[in-house]
Design a protein around this nucleic acid. Structure first.
Lengths: 344, 344
DNA sequence: TTGTAAGCGTTATCAA
DNA sequence: TTGATAACGCTTACAA
């Protein structure tokens, strides 16, 4: 058996409670005994048992992470590892551990969350996504269990603490950028509309066009989580329109990569024939051919802030609901150019 | 407070121990009381407290995952999310939860592992990497703590349970494939030599050349974890050799992507001027330009098997040490071609 | 400043 | 087939 607080107590001739107080660095213990007890801990190689501590404290110092179901593109997206690094940094800083819940179906995930929460495995939860309708989120709210959302909640925004970019604004900005390059026929390629981030980016896009007095064209808007075959067809149809777009706002670098690929197969040159602008600025945006002009959204920071916020809530359940907006920035590379003048 | 076993006991007029037995589905409890107790559990919305259970059982049903330090390329590599999905599936199947340990320095990681292990937070550990010299691995062995390695251990291979591909063989095979295409000047671009996987792939490569009677050329071997600027220079030097290679074995798709990028900047065409063959067959291998010929290593399966193996060890600590080799397969795309005949 | 003892929610041993 | 009770390792009143 491992060495316990009792062993330390015995060796240092004090009561177990004293040892416990030394661990907590309780100021009411004399320096002298602290030294003695610490020496004993070292000698025995004592390490506190977190499980026992959790039971006594009713607190585990573990944060539960909820991912969308793993059949989603989410996992393949470099967004995940990066946000995870941020979460990890934020958690480690305050000695919190991370437990991850995932599953192949929404039902599995929901079950997992219940285990985490009602099983007392975690003190709080971070949702790594935000969807239009989400059982998990509703459940957490009902139970009044501490949680933070990464992404903008679909409803009751002012009642939920979340960390996000201003995707609406960002999308408006980049659409304006394309407009400033002279583009007027701009398409939008989005991912799954069940995710709020997609919706926000679409809305910002549409607003920019409206502000510019450009009538929106339904043919120019495509939705698909495609990466491979799926989207090929859609892009083909889009580019074979009588009046194909001269620029594309793409909701995610990964999708943009697929688009780039398809266009290259169709012998359509980027940015000469069409400009591509996407979001997230993951590593591959830089390595693609041509390198993508993309919106840096500071994914790491998002994760870091999410962890910090949750920990703050755990420390003081009464902190007011907070919205944290992480700044974004357009990184210009080589996938966008001035619209080419068409000779008639 | 949450509803406990005692509440259930009271409501169903039995002792707490009986409720506990019902939960465990102990056959020595009558069906009648089982039904009563289960009804009470439903009525109260009872969920067992894992922490208490862990303390009583001395077992948490949590598996600790140890990642290399997060400054490593590892996180950016799609390998991570995929292996994670496999681990997750394997763990969920047997109701194990996953806790992740990481950190920015090796020291931080080591500390985290100690917390996990000595703090009793986890029942076993999976190392997601294998290095030449690894403090964590040594620590786990010393304490005789259950663990499984993903990747081939550097030493004492026959004493450690691990899951891996036969990277040596795979590398030999693909080098032979390039040889069969007529290439004789073949280079190798590897990642960090501290990781065993890099070493294995290099050794297999060299063996194939030796078997073919080709003298090895140190100028043809480059090591770097570069993705961006780092490797550019190295590739430049390589291609400016008097006798540049006509083919490259690259240890990782991600590196290959960087190489592709650099070559494209240098106006060197793949596969016409040089063939590129890499490992892992991650999604981007398919989306790159040209699509990469790459070795499929079944990353998901690796994760899945690792989880399964560890759980098996936990169930029966005396199961013999096991080595699981996950099969690989060359996926031919468009980055390799027959060597071009040089007119003299 | 320190010790005693109850309690956190389970499981498991022993008796009944 | 079930119930009492100790035990898991720690924290925290309350007492001293």
């Amino acid at each position: 058996m491992a060495v316990t607080i009792k062993d330390v107590a015995k060796l240092s001739n004090v009561a177990p409670s004293t040892v416990s107080r030394v661990i907590a660095n309780n100021p009411r213990i004399s320096e002298k005994t602290k030294i003695i007890v610490r020496a004993a801990m070292d000698e025995l190689g004592y390490h506190p048992n977190f499980i026992a501590r959790s039971l006594a404290n009713q607190s585990t110092r573990v944060i539960g992470l909820v991912l969308p179901n793993s059949t989603d593109v989410f996992f393949q997206n470099p967004f995940f590892p990066t946000v995870f690094r941020g979460l990890s940094d934020g958690a480690n800083e305050r000695q919190y551990a991370l437990q991850i819940n995932t599953g192949n179906t929404d039902e599995e995930i929901f079950e997992g969350v219940i285990q985490m929460v009602q099983g007392g495995r975690v003190d709080g939860v971070i949702l790594l996504y935000s969807r239009i309708e989400d059982k998990v989120l509703n459940y957490l709210r009902e139970r009044n269990f501490p949680f933070v959302v990464i992404g903008k909640p679909f409803k009751d925004v002012e009642l939920i603490t979340y960390v996000d970019n201003d995707n609406y604004m960002a999308s408006k900005e980049v659409t304006n950028y394309l407009l400033s390059l002279g583009h007027e026929q701009i398409g939008f390629i989005g991912g799954d509309l069940n995710f709020v981030v997609t919706v926000e980016r679409l809305l910002g896009f549409e607003k920019a066009l409206r502000d510019a007095g450009i009538r929106s064209n339904d043919d120019y808007i495509i939705h698909s989580q495609f990466l491979r075959e799926g989207g090929r067809e859609a892009i083909g149809k889009l580019m074979n329109l009588q009046d194909p777009p001269t620029a594309l706002v793409v909701a995610d670098d990964l999708i943009a990569l697929g688009v780039l690929n398809t266009l290259s197969e169709m012998n359509i040159s980027v940015p000469d024939d069409i400009s591509i602008l996407s979001f997230n600025n993951v590593l591959f945006a830089e390595l693609s051919n041509p390198p993508l002009t993309s919106v840096e959204i500071n994914i790491f920071e998002i994760g870091y802030q999410a962890a910090k916020s949750l920990i703050q809530i755990l420390a003081n359940p009464k902190v007011p609901v907070k919205r944290i907006i992480v700044p974004h920035e357009l990184v210009k590379r080589h996938s966008c150019s001035h619209v080419s003048v068409v000779e008639l």
